[in-house]
Amino acid sequence: MNAGPYSNEKVQRFIEEEFIPLKSQCFWDKRTELMKKFNISWTPTFLIHDSGGTEHERFIGFNPPDDFFARLGLGKGKVFFNHFRFDQAIARFKAVFERHPDAGGTPEAVYFLGVAGYWKTHDAKALRGIYDTLTAKYPQSEWTRRALPYARIPL
């Protein structure tokens, strides 16, 4: 039996400490109001909402613990980022990069780490840093391609 990500005690602890955990059962023969509200079309679907209920991150399907951790950190970082709380967003994105360098969501965290750094400092070198890091560490990532325009920013 696949016990899912919650069989990992570190995952359990992280969710309990960092989030309000919410579980909603899906019924395909009679979709619930929450399924309709959030356009749920496959399970498992994981959402991260801010305290007002707005969705900031979505990931679908089985995620091994390292990928799962990175998505949780990325999602929490995006909540801060989208509320212009850049110091807290930077801390979250940096933690994802440092603790989960090989996770699937980490290139995206590196991208937003640089963008949050730019918003905080208004120094374009933060954007160039995105390109340099992604090119060196994740050359095949789509987030590296998204950073291509920053290659022209002088150091």
């Binding site: 969710i15 960092e18 989030f19 309000i20 955990p21 919410l22 579980k23 909603s24 059962q25 899906c26 019924f27 395909w28 929450l34 399924m35 959030f38 749920i40 399970t43 498992p44 679907t45 994981f46 959402l47 991260i48 909402h49 801010d50 305290s51 007002g52 209920g53 900031h56 949780l72 999602g75 929490k76 909540v79």
Partner: peptide
């Protein structure tokens, strides 16, 4: 938590985001 509205209230009080698992 099983109720979305209750989760929202808890999130506001705790100052935490919500992790929401839709399962089947």
């Amino acid at each position: 938590e099983r109720d979305f509205d209750v989760a929202i209230e808890k999130a506001k009080k705790a100052g935490k985001p919500i992790f929401h698992d839709f399962w089947f």
